[in-house]
């Protein structure tokens, strides 16, 4: 089984996502529309000891993946971690044509992708209303652009993880883990904004061999139900975990974040975003130093 990279560069800034402000997100979205602007940052991140890059299945991610594929040095150094699906795309599509038609259209796309071996499965899924088969076909469709690249792990988006946890639906999560591990040979993971509830649920459901990506920062931003409960869950349930939102959308200085994270037991990796060379140096320099994760 592939392992997680300790330091992972986040993707939000490349795709217009900002938990600080939508306006800032839109500015960065426009800037990184040209993916050639991302590549120097990736090279610089590698030079700072960052070995992982998280990519959401945003349409721009496919172009970025293609650019990485053609850069031999990057492709040899950087491991990809995929977060799927890109939820905003689906929320908008569900609003535009209704959730049921949206799923039908997506499966149509999977059918179109017969050449890469997805069509038959999607067709059967629709015909038999075999929900898990349908879900697997959609996962394969999302992962298709990353084929042949050094992908190490696949995380389920927090909206879906937390939805399944809320509904108490263990089987779809179990099927996700099985599919990612057995069909793709990759490390399955769950992203969550409900660290306390999600880790408890997965441990009780016997979901072994999964990793988590959950918020950890000194002000408790996106740490639900509370900072203390998430810290306890990290220790009590023992899942290898990637800390995200470590800078709390820019509210915390990297050194302060590193000091906080270094006091946590059970943390495997840290993911953080950066949109410039100096920002990369400040953030990952502080994290490496504070966490003692230097090479």
């Amino acid at each position: 089984m592939n392992s997680l990279d300790r330091l992972i560069l986040g993707h939000n800034q490349f795709f217009g996502v900002s938990h600080f402000s939508a306006e800032r997100g839109a500015e960065r979205d426009a800037y990184f529309e040209d993916v050639s602007r991302v590549l120097p940052l990736l090279r610089h991140a590698c030079s700072l000891g960052v070995r992982g890059l998280m990519l959401s299945t945003h349409e721009r991610a496919a172009r970025l993946a293609e650019a990485i594929r053609t850069d031999a040095a990057l492709a040899a150094t950087l491991h990809l971690h995929i977060l799927l699906p890109y939820m905003a795309k689906y929320v908008r599509a569900a609003n535009e044509k209704g959730a049921v038609r949206m799923v039908g259209d997506l499966l149509g796309q999977a059918g179109w992708a017969k050449g890469i071996g997805l069509g038959l499965k999607a067709g059967m899924g629709l015909l038999r209303k075999d929900q898990l088969s349908m879900m697997e076909a959609l996962i394969d469709l999302e992962l298709a652009p990353f084929r042949g690249l050094p992908v190490r792990s696949v995380f389920l988006h927090n909206a879906l993880t937390d939805l399944a946890v809320g509904w108490g639906a263990a089987e779809p999560l179990r099927a996700f883990v099985r599919h990612i591990r057995e069909r793709h040979g990759l490390q399955p993971g769950f992203c969550t904004l409900s660290g306390g509830a999600a880790m408890k649920f997965c441990r009780e459901a016997g979901l072994d061999g999964v990793v988590f990506m959950a918020s950890f920062n000194p002000i408790g931003f996106q740490m639900n139900p509370s900072r203390e409960a998430c810290e306890r869950a990290l220790v009590e349930y023992g899942f290898p975990t990637v800390a995200m939102s470590v800078l709390a959308a820019g509210q915390i200085r990297p050194a302060e974040a590193a000091a906080y994270l270094s006091g946590l037991r059970g943390l495997t990796s840290v993911i953080a975003g950066a949109s410039s060379a100096s920002h990369l140096e400040e953030t990952f320099g502080a994290l490496r130093c504070g966490l003692g994760w230097g090479e």
Binding site: H19, F20, D162, I219, N224, P225, A249, Q251
Partner: peptide, 14 residues
């Protein structure tokens, strides 16, 4: 801003 105003909830879905 939102990060500093955040108060925990049992589960955050949307």
């Amino acid at each position: 801003n939102k990060p500093k105003l955040h108060r925990g909830v049992p589960i955050d879905i949307g």
